[in-house]
C-alpha cells in the first residue's frame, strides 16, 4: 500500500462524523475605504499618494531617479509581450518597479496582483522600491470583499502585499527592508 493510500485510510478511520460547513456570513460595518486604506498602509510603513491619472502618477514616482538606476514600469495590461520566460535573476538590480493592481483592501492596506500584472513573480520582492497604481474604485473594505471579487479567478500566482518588507526578529525592533522591497508607495488614481 502506498503512503498516500495508507494515510487516506487512517485519516478516514480517524475522522469524526461529518460536521456542517459554516457559511461565512460576516458583514462588517460600512466605512470610508480611502481614509481607512490610507491610515492603515501608512501605519505599517507604506506611503499613499493621490494622482489624477496614470501619467501624473508615473511622472511623480520617477522624480529623483537618474539614468543610472533601473526603473521598470509595467503597462497596466500585460498584453504587449509574454515575458514570463525571462530569467528572473535579470531583475537583481531593479531600483524601482511600478506595477498596477486592480484590487486593494482598506482594512489591512493590502493590494492584490496576479502574475499577469508582474512579468515575473519575483519582481515586487527583488526590487529595492515598489510602487503600485490603484484606481480608487478598486478599493474594497475587507478581505471578505476581496475574495468575493477574486472569486474563482484562475491564476498561476496571486499575491496580497501590505507595505514594505519588514522584520522585528532582533529584539522586536521594527526594521523595514528585510529581504523584499524597502518601500511601498501606493498611488490612488481618481
Amino acid at each position: 500500500m502506498s503512503s498516500r493510500d495508507k494515510i487516506l485510510a487512517v485519516v478516514a478511520a480517524a475522522q469524526p462524523d461529518a460536521l456542517p460547513l459554516p457559511q461565512v456570513g460576516i458583514q462588517p460595518e460600512k466605512r470610508d475605504v480611502v481614509a481607512q486604506f490610507t491610515a492603515v498602509l501608512t501605519g505599517i510603513g507604506g506611503r499613499v499618494w493621490h494622482a489624477a491619472d496614470r501619467a501624473e502618477a508615473l511622472q511623480r514616482l520617477q522624480e529623483g531617479y537618474t539614468e543610472r538606476e533601473q526603473v521598470i514600469v509595467l503597462p497596466d495590461h500585460q498584453d504587449v509581450v509574454d515575458t514570463s520566460m525571462l530569467d528572473p535573476h535579470l531583475l537583481r538590480d531593479v531600483d524601482l518597479a511600478i506595477i498596477t493592481a486592480s484590487l486593494a483592501v482598506a482594512e489591512n492596506g493590502a493590494i492584490w496582483v496576479t502574475d499577469e500584472a508582474l512579468v515575473q513573480r519575483v519582481l515586487p520582492f527583488i526590487t529595492q522600491n515598489l510602487a503600485v497604481l490603484v484606481p480608487k474604485a478598486a478599493l474594497v473594505a475587507t478581505m471578505h470583499d476581496a475574495y468575493a471579487a477574486i472569486g474563482k479567478m484562475d491564476y498561476g500566482f496571486g499575491l496580497f502585499i501590505a507595505g514594505p518588507s519588514k522584520t522585528a526578529d532582533i529584539e522586536q525592533s521594527l526594521v523595514l527592508g528585510a529581504h523584499g522591497s524597502r518601500s511601498m508607495t501606493v498611488v490612488l488614481l481618481d
Binding site: 520566460m85 492596506g109 520582492f125 491564476y155 496571486g158 502585499i161 514594505p164
Partner: peptide
C-alpha cells in the same frame, strides 16, 4: 500573531512558474 492587520506578503501558489 503580532497585532499586524495582515502579513506583508500573502502568496497564493497555484501553478508552477513557466520552466
Amino acid at each position: 500573531a503580532t497585532g499586524q492587520p495582515v502579513t506583508t506578503y500573502n502568496s497564493h501558489f497555484k501553478k508552477p512558474r513557466k520552466g
